[in-house]
Amino acid sequence: MRNHEIDFKIYGDDMQFVEVELDPNETVVAEAGSLMMMDQQIEMETIFGDGSGSGGGFVGKLFGAGKRLLTGESLFMTTFTNTGHDKKHVSFASPYPGKIIPMNLSENGGKIICQKDAFLAAAKGVSVGVEFQRKLGAGFFGGEGFIMQKLEGDGMAFVHAGGTIHKRELQPGEVIKVDTGCLVAMTSNVNYDIEMVKGIKTALFGGEGLFFATLRGPGTIWIQSLPFSRLASRVFAAAPQAGGQNKGEGSVLGGVFRMLDGD
């Protein structure tokens, strides 16, 4: 086994965090800014790339870190190493309501392809790279863009997604059509393409977008019920616009605010 073998426990329901248990000298790597808490003898270090050691020298590490910019991630990641003589714990929290999905890469063909921004943390040695969609249609209209993340190795990795997560096993030749933003992750043997909605009325007035993802088995897929982009658009639509009045409308405080403003 090339990757560090870590134990973990997930807490919470809709606002989850994962607690990773590290033996002496074990390391976990995480996205910058995902730390929640850690024990005293955990040593934190910022590194280029993912620390998997697959880059080959400084130039390779720089190139690997630069590729992460294409997925909208930072050049840097953070490692957490247990420098003590007994078990220590470090916890990571998801950035928005949803679920944390533990994935054992050795049980999923050693490779998982996931949407950008989904990666949270992983055992040291897991390679966090980019996956280019081979088809232009999937690239331009795939909802998550031409580039997705890929996690490679034989250790544990943790990804997060919004709402409820549904894991589904696709049989050989089985096809499922999914909203492009709802696809969280898939194994590398799943065939992924983008299909346009049929019918001009459905496309213009259906309210479901112009494209959806077509996934063909065999393989495993993970689907989220609430993509962050959908949540953000609803929050933005409900927020007061520039020059508008939305200070507690329909409440006693709303009347007070309007009196103070001279309305």
Rank of each mutant, 00 (worst) to 15 (best):
K150G: 02
K135G: 11
G153R: 06
T180F: 05
A157Q: 06
E144P: 03
F146N: 04
G145M: 04
E131H: 15
A122V: 04
Y96I: 00
I147R: 02
I112S: 04
V184T: 05
G109S: 05
E144I: 02
C114H: 06
V126F: 11
G143R: 00
R168S: 06
N108D: 02
K111G: 00
A185Y: 07
C182F: 03
I147E: 00
I176R: 13
S188V: 07
K167A: 13
E144G: 11
K167F: 12
L183F: 09
F140G: 00
L183D: 00
M103T: 02
F132C: 06
F119K: 11
A161S: 09
V128R: 09
C114W: 10
L136Q: 04
Q133G: 15
D117P: 00
G145C: 04
D179S: 06
P97R: 07
F132V: 15
P95R: 09
C114I: 03
F158L: 10
P172F: 10
G155N: 08
Q171N: 14
G173W: 09
K124H: 07
A93M: 09
L151D: 03
P97H: 08
A93Y: 03
G162N: 00
I147K: 02
K135V: 11
S91K: 01
F146R: 10
K135E: 12
I176L: 09
G137K: 15
N104D: 13
G155C: 12
L136M: 13
A122N: 04
V130L: 10
E131A: 13
N104E: 12
E152D: 07
Q133D: 10
E174A: 11
G129K: 10
G110D: 00
G181N: 05
R134I: 08
V130A: 11
A157Y: 08
L136G: 01
Q149C: 13
V126C: 08
T180L: 07
G173K: 09
L183G: 00
G163I: 08
A118F: 08
I147M: 02
F140Y: 02
E107W: 08
G163H: 11
G181C: 01
P97Y: 05
Y96F: 15
L151M: 12
E169Q: 14
I101Q: 01
A185F: 11
K177G: 00
G143P: 01
I176P: 01
H160R: 01
V130F: 06
G142S: 04
L183C: 06
K135Y: 04
N104L: 11
K150A: 13
D117Q: 12
E107A: 14
A122D: 01
M156W: 12
N108W: 11
G145W: 08
G98Q: 09
E131F: 13
A157E: 02
S91F: 03
M148V: 02
Q133P: 02
K150E: 15
K99R: 15
C182E: 01
V178F: 08
A185V: 02
L183R: 06
T187G: 05
A185G: 04
L170Q: 11
A157H: 07
G155Y: 14
A138R: 13
H166S: 11
V130N: 03
P102Y: 10
D179H: 06
T187A: 03
K111Q: 10
C182P: 01
I147D: 01
V126M: 05
A138E: 08
F119N: 09
N104W: 10
Q133A: 13
N108P: 03
V175R: 12
E144R: 11
F146I: 09
M148D: 05
F158Y: 14
F92A: 05
A121S: 13
R134G: 14
